[in-house]
């Protein structure tokens, strides 16, 4: 085989790889668009009026997740299954965003932490790598951390909207999350940096609760959480 033939042959490899990347990129773009739409729906809970119809917003978000599932289904077909990590960087960002959105919906619905299994189900992907296109555990954790920072914003805005009970509940939730993360031995990577941000969310929410407490606003609500939910 001459040098020229060899390089022509190699060019075949390179083109195939580039085509796969191009295909993945296109699906990812569509996923990003849908993710942005879900975000727009969910962000309206920060509006003073938004607190009233959280359930209807969640329903709407759930519907948009159908579209997401269609595209994740498509994504899987674009590359050989065992090369997940070769192209991981291409969808990593959007998958973390989607994990965040799924976690946020679940929190708004039930005030509980979404499990990795639930996120995978919402996105119609796998939990175990062996079974196919899966949700990497680090991406799941990143999504959860993005939600934590959204919740600190929610605590502030719920006070503005006159809901004095929610911050206390958010505070408890975030504290539990913080303890959970403290069990993890994170490497010095982006996830670790994101986790360092959690400290600020915790503090911020504690200050909201403090502001309510010192004015006697936390107590009065605490008695009637059942009614409000």
């Amino acid at each position: 085989m001459s040098v020229t033939e060899m390089f022509s042959y190699i060019q075949g490899f390179l083109s195939a790889d580039q085509d796969i990347r191009e295909d993945i990129r296109k699906v990812v773009q569509v996923l990003e668009q849908t993710a942005r739409e879900i975000l727009t729906v969910l962000q309206s809970v920060h509006q003073p009026t938004g607190f009233k119809d959280i359930p209807s917003k969640c329903t709407k978000a759930r519907e948009l997740f159908c579209t997401v599932r269609k595209h994740t289904g498509e994504l899987k077909t674009k590359f050989p299954a065992e090369q997940y990590y070769r192209y991981h960087e291409l969808w990593r960002f959007v998958l973390q965003r989607l994990a965040f959105l799924a976690a946020f919906v679940v929190y708004l619905e039930s005030e509980a932490l979404v499990t990795r299994e639930e996120v995978a189900q919402i996105l119609a992907i796998e939990v175990d790598r062996e079974k196919g296109f899966h949700l990497d555990v680090e991406d799941y954790l990143a999504g959860v951390l993005i939600m934590a920072s959204e919740l600190s914003r929610l605590a502030v805005n719920s006070v503005t909207a006159g809901d004095y009970g929610r911050p206390l509940r958010i505070s408890n939730f975030i504290n539990e999350l913080d303890s959970g993360f403290r069990l993890l031995n994170l490497k010095n990577d982006p996830l670790r940096k994101r986790y360092d941000g959690l400290k600020y969310d915790v503090k911020k929410i504690e200050e909201v609760v403090y502001d309510l407490s010192i004015r006697g606003l936390a107590k009065e609500q605490e008695q009637e959480p059942g009614e409000e939910k």
């Binding site: 990003e32 942005r36 962000q43 309206s44 509006q47 003073p48």
Partner: peptide
């Protein structure tokens, strides 16, 4: 301030929709 926060939130959501496009 309340008017501004509503308005700003609308703009923010608008930009979020555009995102990185």
């Amino acid at each position: 301030p309340f008017q501004l926060s509503g308005f700003l939130r609308e703009i923010h959501d608008g930009f979020a929709l555009i995102g990185n496009t």
